[in-house]
């Protein structure tokens, strides 16, 4: 009889623990959602964006660090331009469902329709999400952790069933001091390779030169 009572007591304590823990988890989760919502709200006020970027890649494929410099332009909701100025001039313009690519080596324009190219669509969507701050939608794919609150620093660890799991160990995003835009994106891959984007001279809600949407760069 006494044993039964002890068991009941243990079970009750266990249930209370589960209850309390689930409450804590719910609270933590709601805080995170709240933080992500704040970021999204701030970022959603961005109608246009112009920023310089420096991308540093440490890849096992190459003997040395690969440094890429260029500019990123955004015009919400659906236009995105990626201009690389070195080591090779290259442009990628995404407008609605069409991606256009150009590089100085071939001097050819390649047009890709995202509706008929699912793999490129996935890549373009992922890229748009990371640079536009739509992180709330990533909550099903990544375990998101707030590392630092001011300026905000977030760590994204892909879930096992997500596409990124086999390739990416984690992604860390640090916001600029004024938290208006991203300062750095650090991507650590599962094989030890890493890529770091650093955004500089970020200008928000400015009038963008129409030339930035031209896929072929003028000399």
């Amino acid at each position: 009889m006494r044993r039964v009572k002890i068991r009941v007591l243990i079970l009750m304590i266990l249930f209370m623990h589960i209850f309390v823990l689930s409450g804590i988890c719910k609270e933590a989760n709601s805080n995170l959602i709240n933080d992500l919502r704040i970021i999204e709200e701030k970022m959603s006020s961005i109608t246009t964006l112009s920023t310089q970027f420096i991308e540093e890649k440490n890849l096992s494929l190459f003997g040395q660090k690969l440094t890429i410099k260029g500019y990123l332009f955004l015009r919400n909701p659906s236009s995105f331009a990626w201009h690389i100025s070195s080591p090779l001039r290259q442009r990628i313009i995404l407008k609605d469902n069409v991606v256009m690519q150009w590089d100085e080596d071939t001097n050819q324009i390649q047009k890709i329709n995202l509706t008929s190219n699912p793999s490129f669509n996935i890549i373009a969507n992922q890229m748009k999400r990371w640079v536009s701050g739509s992180y709330l939608s990533l909550i099903d794919e990544y375990d998101i952790e707030v590392i630092q609150s001011s300026p905000m620093k977030l760590k994204f660890i892909p879930f096992k069933n997500s596409m990124a799991f086999k390739m990416i160990k984690n992604i860390v995003i640090l916001f600029q001091k004024n938290e208006k835009y991203i300062d750095t994106i650090d991507i650590l891959e599962t094989n030890g390779d890493s890529t770091k984007f650093h955004f500089l001279e970020t200008l928000i809600n400015i009038k963008l030169d129409p030339q930035v949407w031209k896929v072929k760069a003028s000399d």
């Binding site: 890849l59 990628i92 490129f120």
Partner: peptide, 17 residues
């Protein structure tokens, strides 16, 4: 090399290697 400069470099790396 050119594909390593592009957006989809993470995917392309596997194929190049």
């Amino acid at each position: 090399y050119k594909s390593m400069l592009s957006m989809n470099s993470i995917f392309m790396k596997y194929f190049i290697q």
